[in-house]
Write a protein that binds this DNA or RNA. Structure first.
Lengths: 169, 169
DNA sequence: CGTGCGTTTGAGCTAATTCAATAGGAGTGG
DNA sequence: CCACTCCTATTGAATTAGCTCAAACGCACG
């Protein structure tokens, strides 16, 4: 797993996404793409030289179309995250986060009772626009609810319906 | 000017962007693109049938490349806005908003002493993840600072350096 | 000259933050 | 195997930025 983030000069960090196996990073092909990345877990990364890559795509319009699809999808996710960051409560943010991670893992065939959370609380906080303490308290609250069970490096989604409802807003 | 937004079931709204003259809407070409739009000021809009448009692009890879560029740029803006929504104070949000609008108007050759703000305070609030009252108070604060002067339907950016500094974080 | 709507201002509240202390492992060395 | 350290996470207490509710303002329009 890879975290993608942007930093402000004073050190504030916003994680703009987590990349899982098979995800394409740096979709934009912009001259300067202002997002940093580092690994959360060990990861195999395949790097392309931009010139070579764009050269390769010339004459292969289907590839470019695919790249555009991926970028569009990413844009759509980013806009969804804008709603999360701009308009949702801490509890809702966490619910959205857990459900969307669950869906992504499930798509990768890694669906399981326990949702792995390899990233730190700080990472989650920086993704959701919260502090580490608020993330921790919100986990505790959901656990007291019997909505989730917090386990080492993950959570069990006990009451998925309740999480869905929270995530729906 | 057009506002682009997403709604939650309970009516909370997040404006994901404002489109100005020449901007391309619905870049994604996804089956369902979950963003609504309406006009802030009168606007001429050119609509393309998606089938026709994608058909037209086949065999014109430069067009697709251009579309991808635009989408990438939009993604980049969305990620920047995620930083704004996730990590910045009300004052910083407003500064970023004003400076980026200024730059866009300037690019369109509409640079002027007064920055027009045709959208309502509610629109600004829903774009910046704030309430209308906080937006209003922050305008007042910047005005007392002599950073801006609030005028009908706009602001004069008196101390642009200070705004830049705020926007830089 | 009202009436209506968007904006500003005021006062009090609260969700989330900040600051501080404690707890829980994982890894290390005796 | 235990003691110790380090680091992350949790919990607690106090603070605050921004929100909510409410009132006043100001202007366009009939």
């Amino acid at each position: 797993m890879v975290r993608l983030y942007k930093l402000l000069p004073d050190g504030r960090r916003q994680i703009v996404g987590f990349a899982l196996a098979g995800d394409f990073l740096g979709l934009a092909l912009l001259d300067r793409y202002g997002v940093s990345a580092d690994t959360v877990t060990d990861a195999k990364v395949c790097r392309f030289d931009r010139r070579v890559f764009t050269g390769y795509m010339d004459g292969r319009p289907h590839l470019l179309r695919r790249l555009h699809e991926l970028t569009s999808h990413e844009l759509s996710l980013a806009q969804e995250q804008m709603v999360v960051l701009g308009r949702r409560s801490a509890e809702e943010r966490l619910a959205v986060f857990l459900m969307s991670l669950l869906k992504r893992f499930t798509r990768l065939g890694q669906g399981s009772i326990t949702l792995p959370l390899p990233m730190s609380r700080q990472d989650i906080a920086d993704f959701l626009g919260l502090t580490i303490e608020t993330v921790s308290r919100t986990f505790t609250k959901l656990a007291k609810n019997r909505t989730i069970i917090v386990v080492p490096d993950g959570v069990r989604l006990v009451d998925r319906a309740r999480l869905e409802a929270l995530a729906a807003g």
